[in-house]
């Protein structure tokens, strides 16, 4: 290796951006980072294709899924990667890989369709992955108090909830900062509440 800072392996932190359909995941990733599509694909298993053709993997079918992907360079040695989780149920298989080793998650919620974020909240709670809830304040949407959202989602008191605007860089930054601070705080806790 040549000498120089750029040859060191940076610390890379992964943050997931989750939430229901059309809630602003792509908008948020784009507001705070340079967003690019990332193609992943799943090789359909024989079961899902309904064939046991093993004559050649070339014949295997795959389905592609494009995810939102963004990177924030904190400095040469520290990168934050954002992954917008695919919103549909049939892509749960991707979540496990995305969640592996993740620092934490932002669950975006739209108060007009609050239930859409339940699966994301459940997913992170069950796996003990730290998360914050960003209540995306769509124009004309009824504004709920943070406490009303907390009780509707049945969230632990320590889970931060923020009102946000996914279109705003400043607002998106605040949500990410809240998540990182929440992670730091939890790390100080000797016992997890979940």
């Amino acid at each position: 290796m040549d000498s120089g800072r750029s040859d060191r392996i940076p610390v890379a932190l992964k943050i997931l951006i989750a939430g229901g359909f059309g809630v602003g995941k792509t908008t948020l990733v784009g507001a705070v980072s340079e967003i690019r599509p990332l193609q992943t694909e799943e090789v359909l298993t024989d079961a899902s294709v309904g064939t046991d053709d093993l004559s050649g993997v070339e014949g295997k079918q795959t389905t592609t899924v494009a995810m939102d992907f963004g990177r924030i360079t904190i400095n040469d040695d520290l990168q934050v990667y954002l992954f917008g989780t695919p919103g549909q149920d049939r892509f749960w298989f991707l979540w496990d890989e995305l969640a592996y080793g993740a620092l934490g998650a932002v669950v975006l919620a739209d108060t007009r369709r609050l239930a859409d974020c339940f699966p994301s909240v459940d997913y992170f709670e069950r796996r003990g992955i730290p998360f914050v809830v960003g209540v995306n304040c769509f124009d004309g949407a009824r504004r709920y108090s943070v406490e009303a959202v907390r009780s509707a989602l049945d969230l632990d008191p320590d889970v931060p909830i923020l009102l946000c605007d996914a279109r705003s860089r400043q607002s998106g930054k605040e949500v990410l900062i809240a998540l990182v601070e929440h992670v730091a705080q939890r790390q100080g806790d000797p016992v997890r509440t979940h």
């Binding site: 059309g22 792509t26 993997v57 295997k60 795959t62 592609t64 919103g87 049939r90």
Partner: peptide, 22 residues
């Protein structure tokens, strides 16, 4: 590239480039 959540992508064979190896 602006694949969102509308539909799963088409069933494709991106593995041509790997000679079919997955």
């Amino acid at each position: 590239h602006e694949w969102l959540d509308d539909e799963a992508g088409p069933v494709v064979r991106p593995y041509a480039v790997t000679g079919g190896r997955v």
